[in-house]
């Protein structure tokens, strides 16, 4: 129970951290601009005592801890789709697929950026969804709102085939080849969040991606708990597929598990069934650990498959 709460808290903290990083990267645009303009004495004079100037000066001090501030600042940038943090590139697997489908080749740095996301998926499974994805923080909040309002309103829980998001992945790839890679802004919730944050902070405009974000939120509110994560998001499905045999996953102690208890199945946002030793699509969010009455669930190394599973 305690470890479940810990994981849940960790997932919320890390996702809030990711949103903060996205905001900071968008603000970095203004930093670059001030940096190139700061030599102008009149600008310095005008900006004294303003919040922007304080932010600028503290960013400058922070970056100069690592080296030349201008060079260091250029090492980070981008959105969740393709991001560089301190010079390390991260590439979305869907972006890589999209480029492969349209262009039939990868840039070296782009392909190297796949290493960290893919190895995370191989080791931990769908851990991106509950620890990194900024959109899932929104959907997590909406699922809590559903829970709060459930005594007053009726919220349906639609059950669909998981193949739906494979279809969206295929459809998105076709659209990307026909139009351009930009259409993923509408399809991927976390890209929509990144685009909205960037457009809002760096350009001061409302992004069209906000529309799809509102649509996804409505789907989540009215069709099912974390509906978008389960049936719409192609990245989640892809990462779940990659990590279906991940060594670290949810474990059940069959000797203490209660026969009639269904609480882990009811609470799981990804509709995984830990009770039946199903771990595909598990994002290690820790929700089932908090509700399991005999505490028979734990996160650990995957056991060898027993002979009964064939």
């Amino acid at each position: 129970m305690k470890s479940g709460r810990l994981l849940l808290a960790l997932s919320i903290i890390s996702r809030v951290g990711v949103v903060t990083i996205l905001c900071a990267l968008a603000l970095l645009t203004h930093y670059h601009n001030l940096k190139s303009a700061y030599n102008h004495p009149r600008l310095v004079e005008l900006s004294s005592g303003k919040t922007a100037r304080f932010a600028y000066e503290y960013t400058d001090k922070f970056l100069s801890l690592f080296g030349e501030p201008e060079v260091e600042a250029r090492k980070s940038g981008g959105m969740t789709w393709s991001i560089r943090l301190a010079g390390v590139p991260f590439t979305d697997p869907v972006a890589a697929l999209s480029v492969l489908a349209k262009n039939h080749r990868w840039e070296l740095g782009f392909a190297l950026g796949l290493i960290i996301p893919l190895s995370l998926a191989f080791i931990f499974g769908r851990v991106f969804c509950s620890y990194i994805c900024p959109a899932s923080l929104l959907f997590f909040t909406i699922s809590r709102i559903r829970k709060l309002l459930s005594p007053i309103f009726y919220f349906p829980d639609l059950k669909m085939n998981r193949g739906f998001s494979w279809g969206i992945l295929a459809g998105g790839l076709v659209m990307a080849v026909y139009f351009s890679h930009g259409i993923w802004i509408f399809i991927l919730p976390y890209f929509a969040v990144g685009q909205t944050i960037y457009a809002g902070i760096a350009s001061g405009t409302l992004s069209v991606a906000l529309g799809s974000l509102i649509l996804f939120s409505a789907l989540d509110l009215f069709l099912g708990k974390q509906f978008t994560c389960r049936y719409v998001c192609p990245t989640g499905r892809l990462l779940g597929f990659i990590g279906r045999k991940s060594p670290i996953t949810i474990q059940r102690d069959a000797s203490t598990c209660l026969d009639s208890c269904q609480s882990c199945i009811d609470v799981c946002p990804m509709k995984v069934q830990p009770k039946y030793d199903e771990s595909i699509d598990c994002s290690i969010c820790g929700e089932c650990l908090t509700v399991c009455p005999p505490q028979c669930l734990s996160i650990g190394l995957r056991k060898k498959p027993t002979s009964t599973q064939t």
Partner: peptide, 26 residues
């Protein structure tokens, strides 16, 4: 171009901005 926005993010002159829907999906 995968529309990642890194060029707009790093532009010190803030001259690069990103297209919305006004010029089509492409």
């Amino acid at each position: 171009c995968i529309a990642c926005g890194q060029c707009a993010n790093v532009c010190p002159n803030q001259c690069i901005d990103l297209y919305g829907i006004e010029a089509g999906l492409e």
